[in-house]
Computed example of a mutant assay.
Amino acid sequence: MTQYLLSIYQPSDSAPPDNLDEIMSELDKLNAEMRAAGAWVFAAGLHAPSTATVLRAKGSEVLMTDGPFAEAKEQIGGFTVIEAADLDEALDWGGRMATIIGLPIEVRPIQDR
């Protein structure tokens, strides 16, 4: 089985939706279903992009800057790692997640070590 990263993209300047409790309840149900199917590995939400610190190596020095690496209309707001037999199965889980949260989900295979 291959592991896939399901990245949740959200608008950088958005407030939580009014029905956040309902969305989280449905997402909890989907996570439970993924666990029961043996697909769920790990999931986490992230704090706002403004809390990020970017580290860049310049020769022997490491420069630190506040905020996200790139200015963008959307930032990663959370992620889930799953195991799936193939891309089609991963896309199915990601599509169901997108339907629940109403935000774009990027599905990307994780490289084998």
Rank of each mutant, 00 (worst) to 15 (best):
M64L: 14
Q75E: 06
F79W: 12
E33A: 12
P68I: 02
G59F: 04
F42N: 09
A52Y: 04
V54I: 15
E74D: 09
F79A: 13
A52G: 06
I76V: 15
G38E: 00
S60V: 04
S50T: 07
G78L: 08
E71L: 03
V41I: 13
K58H: 12
H47W: 07
E71K: 05
T51R: 06
K58V: 14
V54L: 13
G67A: 00
A44V: 12
T53A: 09
L63E: 11
F42R: 12
K58P: 06
V81D: 06
V54C: 11
A36F: 02
S50V: 07
I82C: 08
G78I: 13
L63K: 12
A39L: 01
K29A: 13
E61R: 14
G45Y: 04
G59T: 05
T53W: 08
W40K: 07
R35F: 11
K29V: 10
A32K: 08
K73T: 10
E74C: 02
E61G: 07
N31M: 01
V54W: 06
G38P: 03
A37H: 03
S50I: 04
A48F: 11
A44Y: 12
L55N: 03
P49A: 01
H47T: 14
A48G: 12
A70Q: 01
A48Y: 07
G59Q: 02
I76T: 09
N31W: 02
K73N: 06
V41K: 06
P68H: 00
G67N: 00
A39R: 00
V54H: 11
I76P: 08
F79V: 09
I82E: 06
A52S: 10
V81H: 09
N31C: 04
A70E: 00
A32F: 06
A44C: 14
E74Y: 07
K73E: 11
H47A: 13
A44N: 14
M64I: 09
N31Q: 01
A36N: 07
L46P: 12
P49N: 03
A72C: 06
A72M: 05
A36C: 02
L46H: 13
I82V: 15
T51H: 05
V41W: 03
T65H: 10
Q75I: 05
R35E: 12
A48S: 15
P49T: 02
A39E: 00
D66Q: 05
A72S: 10
A72V: 02
E61M: 11
L30S: 02
A52I: 05
A48H: 14
V62E: 03
S60T: 12
H47Y: 10
K29D: 09
